[in-house]
């Protein structure tokens, strides 16, 4: 891990997610940041906490037919469909170059069975270039199969347990907002051995072209991200923070420090920026700088002191 020089001179925005010590609480959301090299010309990757890589599956996936994106008011509807080269080719061709990243590199694993999650996690986590694993049990864009794991407590528990068994590295499990009781899912995932929770993945949605009278996405339905879902995501963090004692990575429409603070005050120890990078690639720096200013103005020494501050039921981070 590279220590951020700026954090030594002012308030600390360092945080800890499982066994990962991060100099900044900013992760870049899976599927939104490629492997980081795409954004390297525009932002200093050494100033961010880490990159969550695009999800990889057991077999190659062609992904969904286009169109895959629809811009909606304050949001972005997507249905990419987990396009990726499959774990074999990924390990052979892609992973080695992640060693060059000056920040944490978190692999993302998606699957269609409990065995998939165990198999891909074991192989990916075995690589030194990978600092931690995020378990994507909540992709809404691969038929009903992908998200089933995040919407069924039994399956969420099995997938988490299977991944836990095969790696000692930090295991983050990404939850879906498309459930009735996210706190209940969070509890079973914590009990199954997750080190942290990513809250939340996209909100299911769709858009229809009234001229053609057809859905606008090739996949018919998609996942909504961006500012439009921020209040939904903040509430999910709020509820999860009252239910578990493992750290939460809050995400959903974060573009600046004030957005990030909503999640942190609700109980998130870190945040993830996804769609916000599409508005301005400097968002990670804007968020980090804004967090430092917020703390400095209030003479607060560390970001850890404000985690969960707005949430009286916050269970604390163990």
């Amino acid at each position: 891990m590279v220590e951020n020089a700026a954090s030594a001179t002012g308030p600390s925005i360092a945080t800890r997610i499982g066994k990962l010590d991060l100099p900044a609480p900013t992760l870049m959301g899976s599927g939104c940041y490629g492997s980081g090299e795409e954004y390297a010309p525009f932002v200093d990757l050494a100033g961010i906490g880490g990159i969550v890589l695009k999800s990889v599956t057991r077999f190659p996936r062609l992904g969904n037919a286009p169109p895959r994106l629809v811009a909606t008011p304050s949001g972005l509807l997507n249905a990419i469909g987990l396009q990726n080269p499959g774990i074999d080719a990924y390990l052979e061709n892609d992973v080695a170059k992640f060693a060059e990243r000056p920040c944490a590199v978190i692999g993302s694993v998606a699957g269609f069975s409990v065995d998939d999650y165990a198999y891909v996690t074991e192989r990916l986590a075995a690589r030194d270039e990978i600092d931690a694993i995020e378990l994507n049990i909540s992709c809404p864009n691969v038929g009903s199969e992908g998200e089933t794991f995040a919407c069924d407590p039994g399956l969420a528990e099995q997938a988490t347990r299977a991944a836990r068994r095969v790696t000692a590295k930090t295991l983050i499990v990404k939850l879906s907002p498309n459930v009735t009781d996210i706190a209940a899912i969070a509890r079973v995932v914590e009990a199954a051995g997750a080190d942290a929770l990513a809250v939340v993945n996209t909100v299911r949605g769709m858009a229809i072209d009234v001229e053609t009278a057809k859905p606008r996405l090739g996949n018919t339905t998609g996942g909504l991200s961006g500012a439009a879902i921020r209040p939904i995501a903040v509430l999910a963090v709020w509820e999860v923070a009252r239910a578990v004692k493992i750290p939460i990575v809050g995400q959903g429409g974060i573009e600046n420090a004030r957005d990030a603070l909503e999640f942190i005050l609700a109980g998130a120890s870190a945040v993830s920026i996804g769609t916000g990078n599409f508005t301005d690639p400097r968002a990670p720096q804007t968020v980090a700088d804004g967090l430092r200013s917020y703390l400095a103005e209030r003479r607060i020494a560390s970001l850890r002191d404000v985690v969960g501050k707005a949430n009286p039921g916050f269970a604390g981070v163990r």
Partner: peptide, 10 residues
């Protein structure tokens, strides 16, 4: 969305 090859949306 991203314009830089990161999101596979286009």
């Amino acid at each position: 969305a991203c314009g830089v090859g990161a999101c596979w949306g286009c």
